[in-house]
Simulated scan of single mutants.
Amino acid sequence: MTTLIIKDETASGDILNEIRIKVENERTTLRDIITARVLTEVKSYNENKPEIFKGLIQPSDAEKTLNGFRVKKRKNIDGEQQVYVALDAFLKNGYFVIVDDEQITDYNKEILVNSETKISFLKLTPLVGG
């Protein structure tokens, strides 16, 4: 199992957020990385219910804040719905993913990763999910 560090960045290179995920194989796909990332964020939120959700996808019934998304009534977030919205947003260019300085445009492309792999998500538009 490999631990990867994913960074959310602005177009100018400012880091907005950092998350660690685990992937089972050194050969994986971007789809698997996105899924693992979203499910890790949702699991962490659902277990702790902090005031602010820091994640790739804005949950529906949440408002954008400077540091993330404020979930009304701190309800559980549906991870499966969040994954669906995240994958759909990728296909619609809602965000880009850069792996070791290469933009990945096909989320089914196999990627060789290790603990030194650099992964950056660049969000272009607010993403609203479930």
Rank of each mutant, 00 (worst) to 15 (best):
Y45W: 08
V23F: 00
E47R: 03
E47L: 06
G79L: 03
L87A: 11
I119K: 01
R27W: 08
G55T: 08
L91W: 10
K123D: 05
I5T: 15
Q103C: 11
I5A: 04
S120V: 13
R20W: 03
T40W: 07
A89S: 09
I5H: 11
S115P: 08
N93P: 06
P126C: 06
L112T: 11
E47M: 01
I98S: 05
L66Q: 13
T65H: 14
L127P: 03
R31P: 05
K64G: 06
T40R: 15
E116K: 15
K73N: 15
Q82F: 02
Y107R: 12
I119Q: 05
K72L: 11
E63P: 09
A62M: 03
I21W: 00
L87W: 10
K92R: 00
D101V: 05
N46R: 06
K123H: 07
T105I: 15
V71C: 00
A86W: 05
F96I: 11
D78M: 01
S115E: 15
V71P: 01
F121C: 00
L124D: 08
R31E: 14
K22M: 09
G13P: 01
V85I: 14
T117Y: 08
E102L: 13
N76T: 02
T29K: 13
F53C: 00
Y84C: 09
F53T: 00
L56N: 00
F121I: 04
T10K: 08
F96A: 12
F53I: 01
V97F: 12
D61H: 07
V42C: 03
Q58P: 07
I19Y: 02
T10S: 14
K49A: 04
K109P: 07
G68K: 11
V113L: 13
K73M: 10
D101G: 13
S60I: 08
S120P: 07
R74P: 02
Q81V: 05
V23E: 05
T10L: 06
E18R: 04
A62D: 01
I33V: 11
N114G: 15
E110F: 14
G94P: 03
F69N: 02
V38A: 08
T28H: 06
T117E: 14
K123E: 01
F96G: 12
V71E: 02
T3A: 12
N108L: 10
N48T: 15
N108W: 06
D100E: 03
K109W: 05
V23N: 04
R74S: 14
K22V: 12
D101L: 14
V23P: 05
N93S: 08
K118N: 10
I119Y: 01
E80F: 06
V99L: 09
N17A: 04
V128R: 05
K22R: 10
Q81E: 12
N17W: 03
L56F: 00
E47F: 02
E24P: 08
